[in-house]
Amino acid sequence: MSAAPEVSVVIPTLARPDLVTRAVRSALAQTVTDIEVIVVVDGPDPATRDALAGFGDSRLRVVQLGQKGGAPNARNVGAREARAPWTALLDDDDEWLPEKLAVQLRHAEAATVPMPIVASRLINKTPRAEFVMPRRLPSDGEPVCEYLTVRRGLFHGDGFIQTSTIMAPTALLRRVPFTVGLRRQQELDWTLRALDHDDVALVIAPEPLVLWHQDEDRPRISLNSPWEAQLEWVRTMRPLLTPKAYAAIVMSIISSMAAPTRDVRVFRMLLGDARRHGRPSAIDYLTFFQIWLIPPQLRHTLRDRVLGRRRPAPAPMPDPRATALPLPPVPTTTPGNDVHA
């Protein structure tokens, strides 16, 4: 591979050889063949190196890190190693459909900004159901931070972005690296910080192009993340969030992590924080109380049963320019007791 490939694929992994080989297979099977696949092994892991050695494909490159630094650090390493103008991210437990990169490159070519972040819908696969997320595309004039966080119903996923759906200019991933040490909401954190640059916009392909495997019998960092650290994170993100978005994150994402404490003081503190710095809506209040009152497993089962019955009609293929979303001006957040959602 002397000439630069068209797309670099970055896959961070550690100690999951069966999963990462599945992810690599889906990347190498893309209809866009002029690619390189960079697997960043996040620490000593002979089993993964042995599994990857069996591919025998010159497009596959393995970068071995000397010690564990976490997925955000591994993605940053991969972006620095990338030789293509575009870098697509793939988590080791997800898969791509064969047309994923081809569709995204078409949207990238049609984008009206120099640095488009091209995402897509995905198929959320759980043991109980399969459904497409996000369930809708952004509305005209809708702030991106609200599209990605504010619910229109009791279940998340109206607006949504997930790491394995993201393709972005390699230069942008180097300019705005992932936040090392952040254990949850890594893609939301990166997307909002990247969109704070004037030459960046979000483009969403309406087709589901990724298989997102959820609730499999394996450890998930995202299920063990301390809520205190995530609360500190969202507080630092306030300049990039509208009051509606801030309230939605605190009353949904942070609360879902804190609710297992069953601590009334935490309940009151989060509710007060969302009201003081945000504008909760009626949906936010309903979400907040059901998170604290209904056990997580029961909530997940109800969600999957309700959403799994929905068979959304295939989305029409709009002009790719129609889904380009420059970040609108974010109102300055001031302390207060406004109540919204």
Rank of each mutant, 00 (worst) to 15 (best):
A259V: 05
I249G: 10
S225F: 04
S255R: 07
M251I: 12
M257H: 15
A258C: 02
P243I: 04
M237L: 15
I249R: 04
T242Y: 06
A248S: 15
Y246N: 10
R238M: 14
P243R: 06
R238Y: 00
P260W: 01
S255V: 03
L240Y: 12
W227N: 05
Q230E: 13
I254D: 02
S255F: 02
Q230T: 08
P239Y: 12
S252L: 09
N224A: 14
E232A: 03
R235N: 11
L223K: 06
M237F: 12
W233S: 11
S256A: 13
P226A: 05
L231H: 02
N224G: 13
M257K: 10
A245D: 06
L231M: 08
V250I: 15
A229R: 05
R238F: 03
S225L: 03
A258Q: 08
A259N: 08
K244M: 11
P239K: 08
S256Y: 00
I253C: 10
T236M: 04
M251C: 15
S225V: 15
S255A: 13
W227Y: 08
P260N: 07
Q230P: 01
L231T: 09
A248Y: 12
P260K: 04
R238I: 15
Y246R: 05
L240H: 11
A245L: 09
I253D: 12
I253V: 15
